[in-house]
Nucleic acid binder design. Structure first.
Lengths: 170, 170
DNA sequence: CCGTGGTAATTGACGTGTCAATTATGTGCA
DNA sequence: TGCACATAATTGACACGTCAATTACCACGG
């Protein structure tokens, strides 16, 4: 006999509801942020990281690591943000390869204008939509899913490009 | 005194965990689908809808409505899929404006090859990562969040472009 | 018949994301 | 010294998504 490896119809329905709702939520937040402050979610996380950095400046790779982005993605995004005057790029004294990303005045202003509306939207669309129990459940869910992702990522590194298992950990 | 309208630190942490995890999950699923079957998630949903349609063909707008996409997005995507031979566009007899989207052989084959690996991945990364209680909680979460999104969407239509409220419904 | 308004679908411009090169620099070891 | 290798960051090509036109056609009231 073979073990069941495919989701049931109910499980699949929950999966679709879950991922589509998360997507819709992200889209709505993004749309509000954009229309209220002309910042994209990407802009927001970059500006958040920069405004919390000592001296409001950071090495490009630290920034990428801090917000969990690939460097190429960050590079492209910084290019667009620089064109709009939100950040500046300066050469790095200690490492000639490196770039320091500096929060520009326009960036600081835009970020300050964005933070309250954005947080208000998070509260309205997420926190206030859930009971305290549901909120806690959301946290546990995220932890469980993230844990599974980390586990399979480690397995994936070990058997580079081989067959994937069933995901069963025990 | 003013009512609290911003999330607490804990609430914000849960929010970030939640949305970032959902994002990571989506990204991992997409990456697997792509590397195992050279289909994107977009391709998958389009092919799924088409392969369930009577005669494996559909009017473009029905398709868009069925999968919840904007027509422009679908149009762009169909252009890319047509170039790869996954679908065909045919003229519509009853309405000369319309287009019928037809599932091509290559599309049917690709979809059939993709469905089992994809469902297996959903099970491995989502279903099997959660306890039954957590799975149920995920469903309730999605329902609650989606409900809130629908409510604010209705409000948004009524007061087109006016100030947004706090999201409090009662 | 004709014009006005609505609908089907596409297009172009642009921001965004990924992958695979590429450039330029640092580092360590024979 | 000099060369192999790693690292910092960018670039180019291309897929994807949204928004605002645009094109082509339907439908209906005069």
């Amino acid at each position: 006999m073979t073990k069941r490896t495919l989701p049931t119809t109910d499980e699949l329905r929950i999966w679709r509801d879950f991922i589509e709702t998360a997507d819709a939520l992200r889209a709505e937040l993004a749309s509000r942020l954009q229309s209220e402050t002309s910042l994209s979610p990407g802009d927001y996380v970059v500006l958040l990281a920069l405004s919390e950095a000592p001296d409001r400046r950071m090495r490009s790779s630290e920034l990428a690591a801090g917000i969990g982005w690939e460097r190429s993605r960050l590079s492209h995004h910084l290019g667009r943000m620089e064109k709009r005057g939100l950040i500046r790029r300066e050469e790095c004294a200690s490492d000639n390869r490196g770039a320091e990303i500096v929060l520009a005045e326009a960036g600081a202003t835009a970020f300050h204008g964005a933070t309250v509306p954005h947080l208000r939207a998070v509260r309205e669309l997420f926190v206030a939509a859930l009971t305290p129990e549901q909120l806690a459940a959301a946290g546990e869910l995220a932890a469980a899913l993230r844990h599974r992702l980390e586990v399979v990522a480690e397995l994936g590194e070990q058997f580079e490009g081989e067959e994937r298992g069933t995901g069963r950990v025990h």
